[in-house]
Write a protein that binds this DNA or RNA. Structure first.
Lengths: 160, 160
DNA sequence: TCTTGACCTCAAGTTTACTTGAGGAAGTAT
DNA sequence: ATACTTCCTCAAGTAAACTTGAGGTCAAGA
């Protein structure tokens, strides 16, 4: 394969730092679409290095595989993506990123005001005010923060 | 159970917005330690509302159950935690939080400089410079960003 | 007391993101 | 031609965080 324009799965693995099995998995999930040679072995384009690198970075930011697939779907079909394709997708990615960071910071600031009152479960607690509720992401129980009916715990001091 | 000092699992579920099964699961993971009545049913203290609320908030921030268990272990054993106990734990929590947000922001800023070059897989790309590598968290392939041997993809323009 | 709704335990299923292994075919170096 | 490495496809396993279901017990109101 030395000197060829196409990469074997092993070569791509070396280039990206992914394992061979992970790359096969990503193909299954639609993140890459390798060609096959007559023998049935996968042949990747050089542009796939970049593609998978994007997957790695996006995962680092906490995006799921289907989030990432959605982003990658914005890349051109037939030809290898060029610089402006990547710029476009990176900008879009960045928007999601900013939202995520902002959400975290907002939550953190609310926690700050809660350190003052020591609450974390009272009706009045800002962390429990709806509005964030709808924007909840990721794992966790079905019922969401702020969705719950009336939380109150009057005795805050621990005295009996 | 009306008017009692102790809560049944169903009542706690209503108060926290968690499902009954989730609370049982959290007990199994050591996040709460309910008493049992003669019949073998769980009886929770009011302070457990706060405890589980903390679990919810912490999860919202992306902490795992064992991370959270580690934090909760800092609460007093025998007595119900009071305001200053919660203040202490919230402050600790906040430290982890700040780290996490900072890591994300740093990555985002690096992405920014990459939007300029459209790279995302080149040797020179800041996203691939080691240093972040060690700090990687969460899911993803075993090989980490920056751990990979020599990544280079000279043809960046997409021209053939 | 009786009945219904809430609880109990334990086992198995679900999703995400992969890895591991078995059994076999293809590619490459000598 | 031989041998060794890499690759192929399935199927099954793993960890986290829960849910669902079966089969049975407990508690509270009429």
């Amino acid at each position: 394969m030395k000197g060829s324009d196409l990469l074997s799965i092993g070569e791509l693995a070396e280039r990206t730092g992914l394992t061979v099995s992970a790359i096969r998995f990503y193909e299954e999930k639609g993140l890459v679409h390798p060609l096959r040679n007559r023998g049935g072995q996968r042949r990747f384009m050089r542009a796939d290095i970049r593609r998978l690198s994007f997957v790695l970075v996006a995962q680092e930011f906490g995006f799921t595989i289907s989030d990432i697939a959605a982003q990658l779907a914005r890349l051109p079909e037939g030809r290898a993506p060029n610089k402006s394709d990547w710029t476009r997708i990176s900008r879009e990615f960045r928007k999601h990123l900013d939202e995520r960071i902002e959400r975290m910071s907002a939550l953190r600031d609310k926690l700050d005001s809660c350190i003052g009152c020591g609450c974390l479960s009272m009706k009045s607690c800002q962390l429990y005010n709806a509005g964030d509720a709808a924007s909840r992401h990721g794992r966790g129980p079905r019922y969401l923060l702020g969705d719950s009916p009336e939380i109150d715990e009057p005795d805050i001091s621990g005295r009996r």
